[in-house]
């Protein structure tokens, strides 16, 4: 009894409820005609698509900058990389790698300036991050129309100016990670080895980083900035590094997302991309100022599992599409819950 209580305390009610919900969805699935193997495949694929975006939350949370609602900034860097890579006519692995390399300078620049900004507004990071994200997305809406792209694959065909809202990756680097060493069992189960390996690689880098001197210092900054300062650490510098890391992960994350999804979504596409990532890491057990890679993995599986299962199972069961509503309630409810948790008093 005691150990159950301790487990509940450690895992937190929301996580347990969501895990139970997911479990029951899997149990119910066969009885309403939903194939479990197919569902598992979908969950794994979506985990791979979103995992790196969620990983990008970790550095900023760890240094006490809060949840990165400014993730769209990183996504924009990724979009710039992808579109420039296509513009240069790169395809296949070269195209995908090119997109990453081209996105990197943008991500570094955006992250650096965004980090400098957040250092001046300590205490209000999350609100400002949200609106920095929103306004940069809407600014880029104008830029997508104005920037001098020429590739016929990307611009409006009929005399219109600017890029299309969605650009197909067919013929560029569609499923380049998904299809690497893919394991197929039967016609309904597929394991996207390449994408999961890539996630593991990115997670490994993150894990390793937090085992270096700088990574250790960043954790201390988030845990107690005054302690860190007394130990001779430049708190603002650590925060800036964390924001740059988050932004770079956002850029790489969106590229991985797109190669599996099949399209580049421009314009309003990145608007609300931060919320699912934020919700996922919170569901994984992170708080506003503490997160680790386990939180990322558990949270992304649970959250994406729910998103996969609710449309298929509930639609089959009651013939109506609740998925959108469930997504909103689970993700935003989780964020509100996290924001109302009492955390270390801000200094």
């Amino acid at each position: 009894m005691n150990s159950i209580r301790r487990f509940i305390e450690k895992a937190g009610w929301p996580r347990i409820i969501i895990a139970m919900l997911l479990l029951s969805l899997f149990i119910v699935a066969p009885s309403v005609g939903v194939r479990v193997d197919q569902s598992i495949t979908d969950t794994i694929v979506r985990f791979g698509m979103n995992g790196i975006l969620v990983l990008g939350m970790v550095p900023m949370v760890q240094t006490g900058c809060g949840l990165n609602f400014g993730l769209p900034l990183g996504i924009i860097a990724g979009l710039l990389g992808a579109t420039i890579s296509i513009e240069l006519g790169l395809t296949g692995l070269a195209g995908f790698a090119g997109a990453m390399v081209l996105a990197a300078p943008f991500a570094l620049l955006f992250g650096w300036s965004y980090g400098k900004l957040l250092n001046r507004v300590k205490g209000d990071e999350m609100m400002i991050a949200t609106y920095v994200g929103f306004s940069s997305v809407s600014f880029m809406c104008m830029m997508w129309m104005l920037l001098p792209y020429h590739s016929s694959k990307m611009i409006w065909g009929y005399g219109g100016a600017g890029l299309r809202t969605t650009i197909s990756l067919e013929g560029f680097w569609l499923h380049i990670l998904d299809n690497f060493l893919t394991v197929r069992i039967g016609s309904n189960f597929m394991f996207p080895t390449g994408m999961i390996l890539f996630f593991a690689f990115m997670a490994l880098i993150m894990w390793a980083f937090f085992h270096t001197k700088t990574g250790t210092a960043m954790t201390a900054v988030g845990s107690n900035p005054d302690y860190a300062r007394a130990a001779g650490i430049n708190v603002d510098k650590m925060r800036t590094i964390s924001v740059i890391m988050s932004t770079v992960y956002g850029a790489i994350g969106i590229l991985v997302f797109q190669q599996s999804f099949g399209f580049i979504q421009l314009y309003n596409g990145p608007f609300f991309m931060a919320l699912p990532a934020v919700a996922a890491i919170l569901i994984g057990g992170a708080s506003v100022n503490k997160a680790n890679i386990t939180n990322v993995v558990i949270g992304t599986i649970l959250f994406q599992g729910i998103l996969t299962m609710t449309p298929s199972v509930i639609n089959s069961a009651i013939q109506s599409d609740l998925s959108e509503v469930v997504r909103i309630i689970v993700s935003d409810g989780m964020i509100v819950y996290a924001l109302t948790r009492v955390t270390r008093k801000s200094r």
Partner: peptide, 24 residues
């Protein structure tokens, strides 16, 4: 200010002891 400046309250003791020497 032991709790405010002196310690990483949420972290393990070994970190608390070694951190300053490590960083400085």
């Amino acid at each position: 200010d032991r709790r405010g400046v002196g310690l990483l309250l949420e972290e393990a003791l070994d970190w608390n002891i070694a951190f300053t020497a490590m960083q400085a």
